[in-house]
Amino acid sequence: MDFAIFGVVWLGASALAEWGWLHICRQSLGCLISNEGILAYHAFNFVTIVLLPIFLFVSGLIVFALLPRRAGDERPPHPCECPSRPTFASCWSVGTIAANLLLWLHPTVFDMQKIFAAQLPANNRHDLVIDVTARQWEWIFSYPQYHLRQTVNAAGLDELVIPVRRPVDFRLRSADPFHPYDIEADVIHSFWIPAFGIKEDVIPGETRNEYVMATQTASYRTNPEVRVQCAEVCGPGHPWMEAPVRIVTARQFRAWIHRQQRWQRSRASR
C-alpha cells in the first residue's frame, strides 16, 4: 500500500518537475552564444532531466520517513522489514550504475567527441588567430594575421572583438611582455568568457589553444556575461582582470580592424 502511494506521488511529482524545468527554468545555465557553450547548455539540461526524478525519489523517501504513521496502519512494521528485502538493493545498484553510465556516455563522451573533432588541425586551417596574453592584471589581445599588436577601445582599454560564425583560435600565454626575461614574472590565470561557456587555464611557460565559434552577435554593453574574466585567482587584481567583448558581423569586424590598424600606425609615428 505504502509502496503504491509513494510510487504514484513520486511519478506525479517527477512529471510536474520535468514539465516545469522544460518550460520555465531551462535557461538556468545562462545565455550561451558559442558552439562550445551550446554543448554545455544541452548537457546541463540533459543532466538535469535525468537527475530530477532521482532527486525526487530520494528526497521523497526522506520526507516519507517524516510523516507520522497513520493510525489505521494496523500491522506494526516488522523491525526487519525493508522495501522487499534484497530486491531493492539490487535494483538500486543496477539503477545507479545505469544512470551513471548513461550520463557518462551522453552527454560526456558524445560531447567530448565533438569537441575533440572541432580541435583537429584540419578543421582549423582558416581560423582567426587571436593571441591572448595574460599578465598581472591585464588581458592583452593581438591579431597576428592583421599585424595588430594590442587592440584597445576608444577609452584605451584592452578590447576583444570577434566576428560572428567564424572559428577562432585563441592562443593563450601567461607572460609579462614588458619583462620577457623574468621567469618568475607571471602566474596562472584562466581565460573565461562567461557567455561562451568554456574556460581554459593559462599557465606560465605553456602555450595553449582554445577553439570556439560565436553563434550570434552580442556586446558587453547589453549583456554583462559577454566579457573576458580571469577565473583563477592571480593576486589582488584578480577581480578586475576583465575586458569587454564584442561579437560583430564580418563587415563590422573589417571596419574595426581598419580602425585599429590606423590607430596602431598613428601611435607608431608619434
Binding site: 545555465l29 550561451l32 562550445e36 557553450g37 554543448l39 554545455a40 548537457a43 546541463f44 543532466v47 537527475l51 532521482i54 532527486f55 530520494v58 528526497s59 526522506i62 550520463l103 552527454p107 560526456t108 560531447d111 567530448m112 569537441i115 584562466s190 573565461w192 562567461p194 561557456g197 568554456i198 574556460k199 581554459e200 577565473a231 583563477e232
Partner: peptide, 25 residues
C-alpha cells in the same frame, strides 16, 4: 542526507567536462 543529496548531485554536473568548463571556479 538531503543536503548531501544536493551537494552530490551538483557534483554530477561538475563531472561532465563541457559543463565543468563553464562552472569551474
Amino acid at each position: 542526507l538531503f543536503n548531501f543529496l544536493i551537494g552530490g548531485m551538483s557534483g554530477v554536473y561538475l563531472a561532465d567536462p563541457p559543463v565543468d568548463l563553464q562552472v569551474h571556479n
